[in-house]
């Protein structure tokens, strides 16, 4: 495991529909303007498709976006 902030969906048992694989928590790169971070998201172990949960998008991500835009 890694120690980056982890954002997993609050409910559900998620599969990657294309690969028919259960998702696993994995580090994912996130970039915006001059900012870059690594976070942990549910990701398809086969194709690498990552799941951004709603609470993350409208919460922390939104906050950080505004912060970076105001820099």
């Amino acid at each position: 495991m890694n120690d980056t902030p982890t954002y997993l969906p609050e409910s559900g048992s998620w599969l990657c529909a294309a690969c028919n694989q259960p998702l696993v928590a994995a580090p994912v790169g996130v970039t915006y303007l001059q900012g870059g971070f690594t976070i942990t998201l549910l990701t398809c172990p086969a194709c690498g498709l990552s799941l951004v949960p709603e609470f993350l998008a409208v919460g922390k991500m939104f906050e950080v976006e505004q912060l970076l835009e105001d820099k």
């Binding site: 994912v28 790169g29 996130v30 970039t31 915006y32 998201l41 990701t43 690498g48 498709l49 990552s50 951004v52 709603e54 998008a57 409208v58 991500m61 939104f62 950080v64 976006e65």
Partner: peptide, 14 residues
């Protein structure tokens, strides 16, 4: 059921 958005680029999203 829900729709949301973000502007950050996440490497694992198409």
């Amino acid at each position: 059921h829900a729709a949301y958005s973000h502007r950050m680029n996440v490497s694992g999203v198409d």
